[in-house]
């Protein structure tokens, strides 16, 4: 009696796929902009094929069975590619759960005469597909995380430009939050550039840093200390009044650091350190 289910599924493979495809294509949320119907069909067929091939009477109740490995693998592949293509988690979820609907529909049709068996099998199939669903979400999130990871790396790389504003003067505008990994990148870039250009003054402009708490301040102090160890001076500019307020309220000691309100005044300070003078030209009559 029970052995029937596995056989039924194998026999009805085509039908399952057809019902599933029908459901997917009828769904209002079909993303034919992201994936062609043709591709969707190939993907779905592969999954149904793997499922009916790996399912046996023995493993049906055991979602952890290693025999389902091929199914999980295909699911992982689908999930990852969907995460990268920009599908929402809901859309990917609906994709898997509509497979459950199709399987259940076939079971209902086949076991119409035996409600007790139908009930038992429905639960078993539900459990199995639910487990597939969870695995899909896990990999979906992993796929997203990979995207985030890559973007984070890109952002850190492009967001710390070191600018040579004058012979011997470097400027480094920091935009965004300054955490410890970012500080490391900032420090490395700045110090490397100091060596390469032989600059003796570096201006760290923090106008683009949204907030300065004690941790950020500590990162700034570290950068200044490292610059000093190299034999160059580091000025921090772009300190907004709110930041000055928080710094004092938090009791952060910046007295050992040269701070300036604007990049312009930092530059003026740098010029005077290097004994340079910027003057307005006399008008020629």
């Amino acid at each position: 009696m029970k052995a029937d289910l596995v056989k039924t599924l194998q026999k009805k493979k085509k039908q399952i796929l057809e019902i599933w495809m029908e459901k997917q294509l009828a769904d209002a949320g079909l993303r034919d902009d992201l994936i062609s119907n043709e591709e969707l069909r190939i993907q779905s067929e592969e999954l149904v094929q793997a499922l009916v091939q790996s399912i046996t009477e023995k493993n049906l109740g055991n979602v952890e069975s290693s025999e389902f490995e091929p199914v999980y693998e295909i699911l992982a592949g689908i999930s990852l590619s969907r995460a990268k293509q920009g599908f929402s988690p809901r859309e990917t979820g609906i994709y898997i759960f509509s497979l459950k609907d199709s399987l259940l529909q076939v079971i209902q049709e086949e076991m119409r005469d035996d409600p007790a068996a139908m009930y038992a099998e429905t639960i078993r199939i539900s459990k199995l597909v639910d487990s597939f669903g969870i695995a899909t979400f896990e990999t979906f999130i992993k796929g997203r995380e990979e995207v985030i990871y890559r973007q984070t790396n890109e952002i850190t790389e492009i967001s710390t430009p070191v600018i040579r504003v004058w012979d011997g003067i470097l400027a480094l505008p920091i935009i965004g939050t300054l955490d410890s990994s970012r500080t490391q990148v900032v420090m490395e870039n700045l110090l490397q550039e100091i060596v390469e250009t032989g600059s003796s003054i570096a201006i760290l402009d923090i106008s683009g840093v949204p907030a300065v708490d004690s941790l950020v301040a500590q990162h700034l102090i570290k950068t200044v200390s490292a610059t000093r160890l190299m034999g160059a001076e580091c000025i921090i500019s772009g300190i907004r009044p709110e930041i000055a307020q928080t710094v004092v309220h938090l009791g952060i000691d910046l007295s050992n650091i040269t701070t300036k309100a604007s990049l312009a005044s930092a530059l003026r300070h740098a010029f005077s350190q290097l004994h340079l003078e910027v003057r307005k030209k006399q008008k020629q009559q």
């Binding site: 570290k222 160890l229 190299m230």
Partner: peptide
């Protein structure tokens, strides 16, 4: 102290040894 490598400078600061009181140059 002259010519400290960037990696050495970063490490010293992290270690908590900023060599206060020592002059430095490129």
């Amino acid at each position: 102290v002259v010519g400290m490598q960037p990696a050495v400078a970063i490490t010293l600061v992290e270690l908590g040894l900023p060599l206060q009181g020592v002059f430095t140059a490129l």
